[in-house]
Design a protein around this nucleic acid. Structure first.
Lengths: 208, 208
DNA sequence: TTATGTGAAGAGTTTCACAGCA
DNA sequence: TGCTGTGAAACTCTTCACATAA
């Protein structure tokens, strides 16, 4: 399996874990890393690490391992984290604000730039959260185009959700990170990941 | 397949979705609901709804459907949401505080009671967030026992994470909702669900 | 006639084990 | 010899289709 085939979503979701492991490692001390070492760090098996990487090409040397720095760069490239990705956020409530502050605080997030926030509350419009300006929701279409936003975080209350999402999609947003407790549909070619604290807590209750 | 077999985790994670659909519905207007109707609401297939439910017993009537109210109660029972589950949270930062406020605001969350918050910052100790008191982290063991905490939310900075988790497990915590960007190990019989915004954004970058 | 419950088929994912190269 | 890359096997999860019961 040599050149980029269709990797399953579940593999894509593990790549940032590998990337994090490589960024954690001092590449002067460990210029070479084995699939076994990576597996140890992130808590999986060496076989899975190798299988996952094999979807994207051949990165290691047999009998040796992987070059820490080179593999890190490959993963960044695969995940498109070697360029700037412009992110928006709709809904500047408690959670939205916490997310923006958290994100802006860490340099690890650099390629993912939060460039615009949106809200309907006139009191919030024009304010800045950690240097990022809040725009009125009416300007959504205009600003998505202006800022070239490709990824949208959804943290607004669960009304008109589908409508807002459709507007984003129409204007070129390709991926959503959704915190709204609602079922949302996106067309083929657009990716939606939902993180719903209520649902997660409820399913964890089963194991208590 | 008649009496509660081992249902896969992936099924457990969908049950709260079904429960939400049933709680959304006016059971006076719709005393009966079909697997197809539920599937429509949450965006899945009728077959999957029936298969998922079949892991826990026989709840419907052939040719008719499911009794909305009765199925809701069954799902609550299966998920253990028919009793009070005591929840703790470690790390009263931006995100921790936002989660507590969000959770306390909605009555849907009632069976899941956040009963204690923990932090190391002396300035925060003794404060109350939405009626819930902040305790010093040194009291963790004592308070887990006192409050009978079975589910812990982790929102503190990524230091000593494994140590704190081990302490929780030792004192009877059975499930964790983790927001800390770190690899955590829990013994068999304890459930950990990690929600890592950074990893989620990074994997979404792939699709932009 | 309708819609459930469920085996069986199909699709997807993980694990295994080994050939092959440094 | 050591560790990668990868088919094939094993396992898990989803979809299908139909017997069955109301």
């Amino acid at each position: 399996m040599n050149r980029e085939r269709k990797a399953p979503d579940v593999v894509i979701r593990r790549l940032p874990l590998y990337l994090r492991a490589l960024e954690l490692i001092d590449h002067n001390e460990s210029p070479i890393i084995s699939s076994e070492q990576m597996a140890q760090i992130i808590g999986t098996s060496a076989g899975q690490v190798r299988k996952d990487l094999s979807y994207f090409g051949v990165f290691g040397k047999q009998g040796v391992g992987y070059q820490t720095l080179a593999l890190r760069d490959e993963l960044r490239r695969i995940l498109k984290l070697d360029r700037e990705i412009r992110v928006g956020l709709i809904g500047v409530g408690n959670l939205g604000e916490a997310l923006v502050r958290y994100h802006q605080k860490s340099p690890v997030h650099r390629p993912l730039q939060i460039v615009a926030l949106f809200d309907t509350d006139p009191k919030k419009i024009g304010r800045k959260i950690a240097e990022v300006e809040v725009f009125p929701l009416e300007d959504l279409e205009k600003r998505i185009a202006e800022f070239k936003i490709k990824l949208m975080i959804l943290t607004f209350p669960a009304v008109n959700v589908q409508e807002v999402v459709d507007l984003c999609v129409k204007n070129g947003v390709k991926a959503f990170l959704n915190f709204i407790p609602a079922s949302i549909k996106v067309p083929f070619g657009v990716k939606l990941h939902t993180s719903d604290v209520t649902l997660e807590l409820q399913s964890l209750a089963y194991y208590t």
